[in-house]
Design a binder for these strands. Structure first.
Lengths: 226, 226
DNA sequence: GTACTGATCGATACACTGTATCGACTGATG
DNA sequence: CATCAGTCGATACAGTGTATCGATCAGTAC
């Protein structure tokens, strides 16, 4: 076919020149939509209308891209409140909320040290808001809250995914989990566990998170105000 | 080359017939030696002297293999001690120790619900040892401790790896991190954070873990004994 | 003893990954 | 206008998880 007969290629929407921000944004959109395993350099590049290797001008490896994604989300985490307890609670809640909006965060949180500008800015905001606290106590306290949040969020998101795999809401999932646990408990090998699972009150995710957080904050309070 | 000229293949050490335990053990050895990303079905199979597809007789996917690995390690986690506080502390410490022996555990802990037999047996041991505690309080308390441990271990291992990448011990790593942080702090954008990092006492990993755990246990104590 | 059947097994193949390499092109310089 | 240095990204490579399906083998029927 001669040139004249061929239609011009549909003119791609003129892409703004590439930069890290656009790359990270595209990666986050992919991850939000289809999970972290949907983030491949090829797909990110395709979403931006460029070849995969083009990205290596801006990042040295995929790991760096993931680091940038996590740091970008840290921009959304800004604890507010009066007094150290409200600040730490806000830190925990906003982090959890960010993980709800970006479930892939649960896969990355705590996986690598966070030293990006937004992560540091978050740290600055926290430390600044903890002005009244003894300087030697600040790091241990913030570290402990971070650790709890990372673990709690991971557990929570993991459970949510397991529910979703079966396409079930919470109740159906527990009903489907039930038979397996019932059969297992029927062996009599886990009597104490069986009792707790069967007889104890079951809390929803919100309450579970908050109760654990309260434990931790109570314990912190006892040592800080001492 | 004719058959007659070719030497017989070295007769492979007669491999015991395959089973899940052997597969999981091989995978764990690979992960212990070279990290989780060294665990591929091909490598595991090669270590066992079989073809990759052979494994699919025993597992349905790689994820299942990882689940089995985590469950296998749960067999090592058996909290002991008198009284709920010692039991929970032991739970946390033995889990942390397992993660030190199997660093890849930090990548998997909390990533999927743990319902395997050894994980349930661990749960049984914990719940049984918490006999004196109010039945409705058991789950929230254990869940909170688990969350803290998962997050704390992840952070700790992540830091340890970052140190190792540079081939440095702790002091050199901080010295190498120093310049970056110094330069960043020199911008004046993180004054409060800079003060804490520069002036506050720095705890080692053991102390950091234990302090956070004490916060949590103190808070639990306050509510349990109420 | 032979022929057939059913199940089992694993080699091959596929689609995809992250990224090293290096030829082609571009813009600057003599 | 010719040459060169430097940049860019298409191609290629080594690896991944796993679907497929032909070959193989054990067991059965005659």
């Amino acid at each position: 076919m001669l040139v004249w007969e061929r239609p011009e290629p549909p003119n791609r929407p003129v892409l703004a020149p590439l930069n890290r921000e656009r790359i990270v944004l595209a990666a986050i959109q992919l991850a939000d939509a289809d999970g972290l395993e949907a983030v491949s350099l090829r797909k990110v590049a395709a979403a931006l209308g460029v070849g995969p290797m083009r990205l290596y001008t801006y990042i040295a490896s995929k790991e760096e891209l993931l680091d940038l994604m996590v740091d970008a989300v840290h921009a959304e985490i800004r604890p507010v409140g009066d007094g150290w307890r409200e600040v730490l609670r806000s830190l925990a809640e906003t982090t959890r909320q960010a993980a709800h909006e970006h479930e892939w965060l649960a896969d990355l949180l705590g996986g690598r040290p966070q030293l990006g500008p937004h992560a540091l800015a978050r740290g600055e905001a926290v430390v600044a808001a903890l002005g009244g606290v003894d300087v030697d106590a600040v790091m241990p306290v913030v570290t402990a809250v971070d650790a709890y949040v990372i673990g709690a969020v991971r557990r929570e998101i993991a459970e949510r995914r397991a529910e979703r795999v079966t396409g079930m809401d919470e109740k159906r999932w527990q009903a489907s989990l039930g038979p397996y646990l019932e059969r297992t408990f029927a062996t009599g090998r886990f009597p104490a566990l069986a009792t707790v699972v069967r007889d104890a009150a079951h809390l929803d995710a919100d309450h579970t998170f908050r109760i654990g957080l309260d434990f931790l904050l109570d314990g912190i309070e006892a040592r800080i105000s001492r």
